[in-house]
Simulated scan of single mutants.
Amino acid sequence: MTTALIRRHTETEPAPLFETPGHLLDKFIKDFLQPNKIFLDQLHKAVNTICTFLKENCFRHSTIKVHKIVQGGSAGKGTALKTGSDADLVVFPSSIKSFTSQVAERTSVINEIRHQLEACQQEKNFEVKFEISKRTAPRVLSFSLKSEDLNESVDFDVLPAFNVLGQLEFGFKPSPAVYTELISLYKSPSPLRGEFSTCFTELQRNFVLSRPTKLKDLIRLVKYWYKQCERKLKIKGSLPPKYALELLTIYAWEQGSRAEDFDTAIGFRTVLELVTRYQQLCIFWTVNYSFEHEIIRNFLLTQIQKPRPVILDPAEPTGDVGGGDRWCWHLLAKEASEWLFSLCFKDGAGNFVRPWNVPAASQIPIIWGARMPPTVNEMFSFRSRGLLE
């Protein structure tokens, strides 16, 4: 497809991605995927107004205070699409004093937040349409912010959570005690696995937000591709979460480029080729937790020996968004294999671009702390899984 053909499409009717040549992908992202800057500004103002109102008014007739409100999801990370994006507003009230009390207290907290959101809706003026969902759920409250002029919107989930990280400064690691407590709860017979990802929203957001603009645009492109696959495949099986594809995109860039400016077609091809190699994927980061602490190290070694794909949440190690055979990676891999022959991966001369050379598995750092070095059986296991050279 030529540039002239792409221009014929309106902003609400994107050109087919499959037919867009690789050297025009940056234009495709700019024209069809990036949210309008006017809407982003309106969104930012509206979210600030809502957060300020909630902090000042929630529980004002009690001793309970709201420590902080953190915006997560694609809008918080800077990877939102023009349409159909989501975001989280995670509210950290003082009444939630532990992981387990998060479960016990959340219904009453959500009821209070709903009351205050309705008051905010009545008392404040917004440049966007502010709609609170009438759906009631014990774990989450939803609302949307829409621009009717620009036909753009973001759906928000409001979630109460335990402020386990405190007032975390950007770039600082949490105390290992945060993770040892989480791991202990995860390993207990209590049915609370996966309940506490929201407590780490700030770290999840910062992990993506700090990345170069072009990498966030590549994430947008991968998410757009994923949504096309999702529409086609949803009746056949449950696909892995979008977050897994976000992390896979970051991993591909870290291992293959690390440049602030790179060829989008090459990055996109690398991600799709990693998807086709899903049975080899074992990916983790040590930016927030590491192998240095014995309890965390032993847990990580257990996590990375699970059936692949394994993709650990860089914010909290109990979250494996790769999920082994939990999701239908084979369906996504089949789509990725077919897409590798699309025009997306041809350069201006009509030649297929070559992907970055990226291993399918992260390497275990040789840091064993006070523990004895790994046994021969452990070393053999790690090598057979591609975790050691």
Rank of each mutant, 00 (worst) to 15 (best):
T3I: 12
E19T: 09
G22K: 04
D31T: 13
N36H: 14
A46M: 09
V47A: 09
V47M: 10
T49W: 10
T49Q: 15
C51Y: 01
C51N: 12
T52P: 04
K55H: 05
C58G: 04
R60S: 11
S62W: 10
V66A: 04
I69Y: 01
K77G: 02
G78K: 07
G84Q: 08
D86W: 13
L89T: 02
S95N: 12
I96S: 04
K97V: 12
V103Y: 14
V103S: 08
S108T: 13
V109W: 02
R114C: 14
H115N: 10
L117T: 04
A119Y: 10
C120Q: 05
F130T: 01
R139S: 08
F143A: 06
S144R: 15
K146V: 12
D149L: 15
E152K: 14
S153T: 11
F156K: 00
V158R: 00
L159C: 01
F162L: 03
L168N: 06
E169R: 15
V178H: 14
L185A: 00
Y186K: 04
P191H: 05
R193W: 00
L203A: 03
P212S: 02
L218C: 12
L221A: 04
G237L: 05
S238T: 13
G256N: 04
A259Q: 09
E260L: 06
D261Y: 02
T264W: 05
T270S: 14
V271A: 05
Y278I: 00
V287Y: 05
N288W: 03
F291M: 14
L300W: 02
L301D: 07
P309V: 03
A315V: 00
G323I: 04
D325H: 11
W329T: 01
H330N: 12
E335R: 11
A336R: 07
E338M: 14
D347G: 12
G348F: 06
G350K: 05
R354G: 04
P355W: 05
Q363M: 08
P365I: 06
W368D: 05
V376T: 08
R385P: 06
L387M: 11
E389V: 08
